[in-house]
Amino acid sequence: NIFRILGDLSHLASIVILLRTVQKTQRVDGISLKTQILYVLVFCTRYLDLLTFRWKSVYNTLMKMVFIGASVRVIQLIQGCKIQNPVAYKDMIFRDTLQIKYLVGPCAVLALIFNYKFTLLELCWSFSLWLESVAILPQLFMLSRSGKASTLTTHYIFALGLYRALYIPNWIWRYYSEDRLEKLSVFTGLLQTALYSDFFYIYYKKVVKGAGFELP
Protein backbone atom coordinates (compact mmCIF):
# COMPACT_ATOMS: atom_id res chain seq x y z
CA ASN A 1 0.00 0.00 0.00
CA ILE A 2 0.92 3.61 -0.58
CA PHE A 3 1.75 4.49 3.04
CA ARG A 4 4.22 1.68 3.38
CA ILE A 5 6.00 2.51 0.13
CA LEU A 6 6.15 6.19 1.03
CA GLY A 7 7.42 5.22 4.49
CA ASP A 8 10.17 3.06 3.05
CA LEU A 9 11.08 5.77 0.56
CA SER A 10 11.34 8.47 3.22
CA HIS A 11 13.49 6.10 5.27
CA LEU A 12 15.72 5.63 2.26
CA ALA A 13 15.72 9.39 1.63
CA SER A 14 16.85 10.08 5.20
CA ILE A 15 19.84 7.79 4.77
CA VAL A 16 20.73 9.24 1.36
CA ILE A 17 20.53 12.79 2.77
CA LEU A 18 22.89 11.83 5.57
CA LEU A 19 25.34 9.90 3.38
CA ARG A 20 25.56 12.66 0.79
CA THR A 21 25.95 15.42 3.33
CA VAL A 22 28.79 13.75 5.19
CA GLN A 23 30.45 12.67 1.96
CA LYS A 24 30.27 16.07 0.29
CA THR A 25 31.08 18.32 3.19
CA GLN A 26 33.30 16.00 5.22
CA ARG A 27 31.58 17.53 8.20
CA VAL A 28 29.96 15.75 11.06
CA ASP A 29 28.75 18.63 13.18
CA GLY A 30 25.29 18.06 14.51
CA ILE A 31 25.30 14.35 13.67
CA SER A 32 25.29 11.95 16.60
CA LEU A 33 27.69 9.04 16.12
CA LYS A 34 25.89 7.15 18.86
CA THR A 35 22.55 7.29 17.05
CA GLN A 36 24.25 6.01 13.91
CA ILE A 37 25.88 3.12 15.81
CA LEU A 38 22.48 2.25 17.27
CA TYR A 39 21.00 2.11 13.77
CA VAL A 40 23.66 -0.38 12.65
CA LEU A 41 22.67 -2.48 15.66
CA VAL A 42 18.96 -2.08 14.83
CA PHE A 43 19.34 -3.23 11.23
CA CYS A 44 21.73 -6.07 12.03
CA THR A 45 19.43 -7.51 14.71
CA ARG A 46 16.23 -7.00 12.73
CA TYR A 47 17.33 -8.40 9.40
CA LEU A 48 18.84 -11.62 10.74
CA ASP A 49 16.22 -13.42 8.65
CA LEU A 50 18.42 -12.64 5.65
CA LEU A 51 20.63 -15.44 6.96
CA THR A 52 17.78 -17.96 6.89
CA PHE A 53 17.49 -17.47 3.11
CA ARG A 54 13.71 -17.57 3.25
CA TRP A 55 13.46 -14.31 1.41
CA LYS A 56 10.13 -12.64 0.81
CA SER A 57 10.72 -10.56 -2.27
CA VAL A 58 13.47 -8.91 -4.26
CA TYR A 59 12.32 -5.53 -2.94
CA ASN A 60 12.32 -6.68 0.68
CA THR A 61 15.72 -8.37 0.49
CA LEU A 62 17.32 -5.56 -1.47
CA MET A 63 16.05 -2.86 0.90
CA LYS A 64 17.30 -4.77 3.92
CA MET A 65 20.75 -5.09 2.39
CA VAL A 66 20.76 -1.41 1.44
CA PHE A 67 19.79 -0.36 4.97
CA ILE A 68 22.49 -2.48 6.59
CA GLY A 69 25.10 -1.41 4.05
CA ALA A 70 24.23 2.27 4.21
CA SER A 71 24.23 2.39 8.01
CA VAL A 72 27.70 0.83 8.08
CA ARG A 73 28.86 3.24 5.37
CA VAL A 74 27.68 6.21 7.46
CA ILE A 75 29.87 5.05 10.35
CA GLN A 76 32.82 4.65 7.97
CA LEU A 77 32.32 8.17 6.63
CA ILE A 78 32.07 9.64 10.12
CA GLN A 79 35.26 7.83 11.08
CA GLY A 80 36.84 9.26 7.93
CA CYS A 81 36.11 12.76 9.23
CA LYS A 82 38.20 11.92 12.26
CA ILE A 83 41.25 12.26 10.01
CA GLN A 84 39.93 14.84 7.55
CA ASN A 85 38.39 17.17 10.07
CA PRO A 86 39.63 16.25 13.57
CA VAL A 87 38.43 19.43 15.27
CA ALA A 88 34.81 19.00 14.15
CA TYR A 89 34.97 15.30 14.96
CA LYS A 90 36.21 15.92 18.51
CA ASP A 91 33.58 18.57 18.99
CA MET A 92 30.89 16.11 17.91
CA ILE A 93 32.16 13.38 20.27
CA PHE A 94 32.30 15.94 23.06
CA ARG A 95 28.66 16.89 22.57
CA ASP A 96 27.39 13.37 21.93
CA THR A 97 26.92 12.66 25.60
CA LEU A 98 23.86 10.45 26.03
CA GLN A 99 25.05 7.05 27.22
CA ILE A 100 24.13 4.17 24.95
CA LYS A 101 23.89 1.63 27.77
CA TYR A 102 20.83 3.39 29.20
CA LEU A 103 19.06 2.71 25.92
CA VAL A 104 20.40 -0.73 24.99
CA GLY A 105 19.88 -2.20 28.48
CA PRO A 106 16.17 -1.41 28.86
CA CYS A 107 15.54 -2.45 25.25
CA ALA A 108 17.11 -5.85 25.93
CA VAL A 109 14.90 -6.28 28.98
CA LEU A 110 11.78 -5.20 27.05
CA ALA A 111 12.66 -7.68 24.29
CA LEU A 112 12.85 -10.45 26.89
CA ILE A 113 9.40 -9.52 28.20
CA PHE A 114 7.62 -8.68 24.94
CA ASN A 115 8.24 -11.14 22.15
CA TYR A 116 6.30 -13.60 20.04
CA LYS A 117 8.51 -16.57 20.71
CA PHE A 118 11.50 -17.15 22.96
CA THR A 119 13.95 -17.85 20.16
CA LEU A 120 17.10 -15.95 19.31
CA LEU A 121 15.69 -14.60 16.04
CA GLU A 122 12.46 -13.41 17.65
CA LEU A 123 14.24 -11.86 20.62
CA CYS A 124 16.64 -10.00 18.35
CA TRP A 125 13.73 -8.83 16.20
CA SER A 126 11.84 -7.51 19.22
CA PHE A 127 15.02 -5.89 20.55
CA SER A 128 15.54 -4.14 17.21
CA LEU A 129 12.01 -2.69 17.33
CA TRP A 130 12.45 -1.30 20.82
CA LEU A 131 15.91 0.00 20.03
CA GLU A 132 14.77 1.66 16.82
CA SER A 133 12.08 3.52 18.68
CA VAL A 134 14.66 5.18 20.96
CA ALA A 135 17.75 5.21 18.70
CA ILE A 136 17.19 8.85 17.75
CA LEU A 137 17.44 10.00 21.38
CA PRO A 138 21.22 10.68 21.40
CA GLN A 139 20.67 12.79 18.27
CA LEU A 140 17.72 14.72 19.73
CA PHE A 141 19.56 15.12 23.03
CA MET A 142 22.51 16.60 21.18
CA LEU A 143 20.20 18.97 19.30
CA SER A 144 18.40 20.12 22.39
CA ARG A 145 21.66 20.85 24.16
CA SER A 146 23.32 22.74 21.33
CA GLY A 147 20.06 24.44 20.38
CA LYS A 148 21.10 24.72 16.75
CA ALA A 149 21.31 22.36 13.83
CA SER A 150 22.16 22.62 10.18
CA THR A 151 19.18 22.48 7.83
CA LEU A 152 20.40 19.16 6.46
CA THR A 153 20.49 17.57 9.88
CA THR A 154 16.92 18.66 10.42
CA HIS A 155 15.84 17.34 7.00
CA TYR A 156 17.49 14.05 7.89
CA ILE A 157 15.67 13.74 11.20
CA PHE A 158 12.42 14.83 9.58
CA ALA A 159 12.61 12.16 6.85
CA LEU A 160 13.54 9.55 9.43
CA GLY A 161 10.60 10.45 11.66
CA LEU A 162 8.23 10.62 8.72
CA TYR A 163 9.03 7.01 7.85
CA ARG A 164 7.64 5.55 11.07
CA ALA A 165 4.78 8.03 11.09
CA LEU A 166 3.74 6.80 7.62
CA TYR A 167 3.87 3.24 8.88
CA ILE A 168 0.99 4.03 11.23
CA PRO A 169 -1.65 4.52 8.48
CA ASN A 170 -0.04 1.49 6.82
CA TRP A 171 -0.81 -0.63 9.88
CA ILE A 172 -4.38 0.67 10.03
CA TRP A 173 -4.73 -0.15 6.34
CA ARG A 174 -3.37 -3.67 6.83
CA TYR A 175 -5.60 -4.24 9.82
CA TYR A 176 -8.69 -3.66 7.69
CA SER A 177 -7.54 -5.12 4.38
CA GLU A 178 -5.50 -8.09 5.60
CA ASP A 179 -6.88 -8.49 9.11
CA ARG A 180 -3.32 -8.24 10.27
CA LEU A 181 -2.12 -6.56 13.43
CA GLU A 182 1.50 -6.74 14.54
CA LYS A 183 1.09 -5.44 18.07
CA LEU A 184 4.77 -5.02 18.86
CA SER A 185 5.50 -3.08 15.68
CA VAL A 186 2.50 -0.85 16.20
CA PHE A 187 3.31 -0.05 19.81
CA THR A 188 7.00 0.65 19.27
CA GLY A 189 6.10 2.57 16.11
CA LEU A 190 3.74 4.81 18.06
CA LEU A 191 6.40 5.31 20.72
CA GLN A 192 8.95 6.21 18.08
CA THR A 193 6.65 8.70 16.39
CA ALA A 194 5.78 10.22 19.76
CA LEU A 195 9.46 10.86 20.45
CA TYR A 196 9.63 12.75 17.16
CA SER A 197 6.48 14.76 17.69
CA ASP A 198 8.16 17.60 19.55
CA PHE A 199 10.79 17.77 16.85
CA PHE A 200 8.13 17.76 14.09
CA TYR A 201 6.43 20.72 15.69
CA ILE A 202 9.64 22.74 15.87
CA TYR A 203 10.57 21.67 12.34
CA TYR A 204 7.23 22.90 11.06
CA LYS A 205 7.47 26.20 12.85
CA LYS A 206 11.06 26.98 11.98
CA VAL A 207 11.99 25.26 8.75
CA VAL A 208 8.71 25.15 6.88
CA LYS A 209 7.82 28.71 7.78
CA GLY A 210 11.28 29.91 6.85
CA ALA A 211 13.77 31.14 9.43
CA GLY A 212 16.60 29.05 10.80
CA PHE A 213 16.29 26.04 13.00
CA GLU A 214 16.69 26.91 16.64
CA LEU A 215 15.42 25.10 19.68
CA PRO A 216 14.19 27.07 22.66
Partner: peptide, 10 residues
Protein backbone atom coordinates in the same frame (compact mmCIF):
# COMPACT_ATOMS: atom_id res chain seq x y z
CA UNK B 1 1.23 -17.24 14.70
CA UNK B 2 3.92 -14.71 14.09
CA UNK B 3 6.75 -16.45 12.36
CA UNK B 4 9.77 -14.83 10.83
CA UNK B 5 8.16 -15.27 7.39
CA UNK B 6 5.32 -13.02 8.46
CA UNK B 7 7.61 -10.12 9.09
CA UNK B 8 7.47 -8.61 5.66
CA UNK B 9 7.90 -5.01 6.77
CA UNK B 10 11.20 -3.22 6.85
Amino acid sequence: DNTIEDKDEL
